[in-house]
């Protein structure tokens, strides 16, 4: 390591393109939005930077704060579900035979091969009232009723199949987020688990721990870096999502992302949109910091 520090030219030369890219395409627009949050609309497109705090005042309206809170809750639940679903998947890929491993990894990232919009519409086709899921359930319902009627149990099934209302509500949004962001959880988890020293697991078994205990006391703590990256990679985009909640959510499933999108587009209130964006950014920072802090405390107590 030390010898690399003594050769800084390598770093500087390889760093330049990335740094330029970030400056031009990330920090500059971000700075611009930051400025716009302090502006006033002076016409259909013109915005004067007057350093007013009105936009932030407006953004702190209880209506928006409620949406912030709701977005956090939905993103947190979706992230938790992602973690619970992704861990066994990542573990299974890690312990899979070396020959099928690349195939399994490809399956994990396969959804990326189609556009997000296409995937979300496909999900609508599956989940809507007269979609594939309900058709399938109706078929099962009819079959069950045909069997049950001669036995005198037909009453139990009612006279009409009532489709499940699974689309256009909050669970549908959560489901959509889990579906779309699952690979972002699986991949970092897999990367950490893959590097895990297998002899540690054997040592745990050797010392008398069951597989279940080994999972909780050795695998999960050592997968912590993967859990941290996965949670950040899922939670942050989930917090700002607007497409999924727009398409899969009902009228009451609006998230803060939808509001921000509307300010920039339909409502044409860029300063308010900018202020809301930055509030979301700050809130995300605080949430992640809190989470990292509680994590660290738990780790210390466990050691």
């Amino acid at each position: 390591m030390e010898s690399w520090r003594a050769a800084p030219a390598v770093f500087w030369i390889t760093l330049v393109p990335g740094v330029v890219w970030l400056l031009v395409f990330f920090f500059a627009p971000l700075a611009l939005i930051w400025l716009l949050a302090f502006g006033e609309r002076a016409g259909p497109v013109a915005i004067d930077i007057t350093w007013t705090l009105d936009n932030y005042r407006q953004a702190l309206d209880p209506l928006y704060l409620g949406l912030f809170w709701k977005s956090f809750r939905i993103a947190a639940v979706a992230t938790a579900i992602c973690l619970v679903v992704a861990f066994p998947v990542a573990l299974a890929v890690t312990f899979a035979d070396g020959r099928v491993k690349p195939l399994l990894l490809m399956l994990v990232v396969l959804p990326f091969w189609t556009n997000l919009l296409v995937r979300t519409y496909a999900m609508i086709a599956v989940l809507r009232t007269r979609g594939y899921l309900n058709s399938g359930l109706e078929y099962l319902w009819m079959a069950a009723k045909t069997v049950a009627t001669p036995l005198g149990l037909g009453e139990l099934f009612g006279d009409r199949f009532r489709p499940l209302e699974i689309l256009y509500n909050d669970p549908a949004v959560i489901f959509g987020i889990v579906y779309v962001y699952l690979p972002f959880m699986v991949l970092p988890l897999y990367a950490t688990l893959e590097r895990l020293d297998r002899s540690l697991l054997e040592a745990s078994l050797d010392l008398g721990a069951s597989h279940w205990r080994t999972f909780w006391r050795v695998i999960v703590p050592l997968a912590r870096p993967g859990i941290v990256s996965g949670v950040i990679l899922v939670f942050v985009p989930a917090l700002g999502t607007f497409l999924i909640s727009d398409l899969l959510g009902g009228p009451s499933s609006q998230l803060i992302g939808n509001v921000i999108e509307r300010q920039f587009k339909a409502a044409n209130n860029v300063p308010l949109g900018a202020a809301l964006s930055f509030l979301l950014l700050y809130a995300t920072f605080v949430a992640l910091a809190l989470w990292a802090w509680s994590n660290e405390r738990m780790r210390r107590r466990a050691g």
């Binding site: 020293d197 002899s199 540690l200 050691g303």
Partner: peptide, 15 residues
């Protein structure tokens, strides 16, 4: 039966 591993396999996350 208990084993002392070639690589020690001491749990890195525990004291």
């Amino acid at each position: 039966v208990n084993m002392v591993f070639q690589s020690y396999a001491v749990f890195p996350h525990m004291t």
